[in-house]
Amino acid sequence: MRITLKVNGGTYTREVEGHRTLLRFLREDLGFTGTKEGCGAGECGACTVIMDGKTVNSCMVLALEADGANVETIEGEASAGKLSVIQEAFDRHHAVQCGYCTGGMIMSVRDLLHRNPKPSVEEIKEGIEGNFCRCTGYQQIIEAVLDASGQLGEGPGQVREGRLEHA
């Protein structure tokens, strides 16, 4: 079947088989390999993309369902080579180790900050609870989101000596 969709602002028209997932379509047909398959079962969040303003696990969405949709992936996060505020914060706070979860994680954070520009730590946790990271203990990621949302300053609940104090 023929589908037409937007990915990171570009329009693509392709023939797809009915069973093809959006993840496989993005990676193999369009070459957006920044979106990863971690589990293929909608559990790990590594394949998170934004579809029509909402995050989805692209391994659980058929490419056909994305017909007419506007899809955003990690490749669209930086603009003209310049890192986004979220990406810069992830870099600054060492929120990346092996990097395999990072693309999906940043998509979830982007969606969160779009809905809630100043999330609390608890709200950040809810925002990324569908994204597993096996390398970190998530602290650097939470710090990065606080920073990206302009919430790091002086006082308690802040980064102190490289550590997040949010008890």
């Binding site: 990676r27 957006f32 390999t33 920044g34 979106t35 990863k36 398959e37 992936t73 990690i74 490749e75 996060e77 930086a78 890192l83 990406q87 992830f90 870099d91 600054r92 060492h94 990346v96 180790q97 990097g99 395999y100 990072t102 693309g103 940043i106």
Partner: peptide
């Protein structure tokens, strides 16, 4: 990791693991 090109590639979704090549 901060300031390392490899980490920047990760952040942009450009890192090529085997299945991405």
């Amino acid at each position: 990791m901060k300031g390392v090109p490899e980490a920047l590639r990760n952040l942009r979704g450009e890192t090529a693991y085997i299945d991405d090549l």
